[in-house]
Amino acid sequence: MIKVSILYPYRENGHFDVDYYCVTHMPLAAKLFGPSLKGWSVDVGINAGPPGTPPPYVAAGHFLFDSTDDFYKVSKSASEQLMADIPNYTDAGNGTTLISEIRISV
């Protein structure tokens, strides 16, 4: 199983609408990805460890797929619509993508 994470760096005075991202954008992505998508989640940054410090990332969206091939097949057709939706929740651009292999899940 693989996880595709989109990481949105924290920026002082940056705009990120977490509610829109969770309620509208991520369900849109799930719909566009279809049955190849095995699950999704959103992390919202709190801090960098010590209380009161800004988080390194304001948010991260995660998508689970059986393989990178499964992700690549659906992402190509979905990317235009998902990229067009980005200005509705952030002024930070499209974030950084990390594709990782899940080795252990409990």
Results as ranks from 00 to 15, higher is better:
34 G>V: 02
52 G>L: 10
44 V>C: 02
45 G>V: 08
90 T>W: 01
39 G>H: 06
88 N>E: 08
68 T>C: 00
81 Q>K: 13
52 G>Y: 07
36 S>R: 14
57 Y>I: 11
52 G>I: 04
38 K>R: 15
64 L>K: 05
61 G>W: 06
97 T>H: 05
69 D>Q: 14
99 I>M: 13
41 S>G: 12
52 G>V: 07
58 V>A: 13
61 G>E: 03
41 S>P: 00
30 A>T: 12
56 P>F: 14
100 S>C: 05
91 D>T: 10
62 H>L: 13
46 I>W: 13
81 Q>N: 01
78 A>K: 03
100 S>R: 11
83 M>D: 12
97 T>R: 13
65 F>H: 07
102 I>D: 06
53 T>W: 14
75 S>Q: 06
68 T>Y: 09
34 G>Q: 04
102 I>L: 13
53 T>N: 08
40 W>S: 12
61 G>N: 01
41 S>Y: 13
47 N>Q: 07
33 F>M: 11
68 T>K: 09
62 H>V: 05
88 N>P: 00
102 I>V: 15
103 R>A: 15
59 A>L: 02
28 L>E: 14
70 D>F: 01
80 E>G: 03
88 N>D: 04
64 L>H: 10
68 T>I: 12
73 K>C: 02
80 E>K: 12
62 H>I: 03
71 F>M: 06
66 D>T: 08
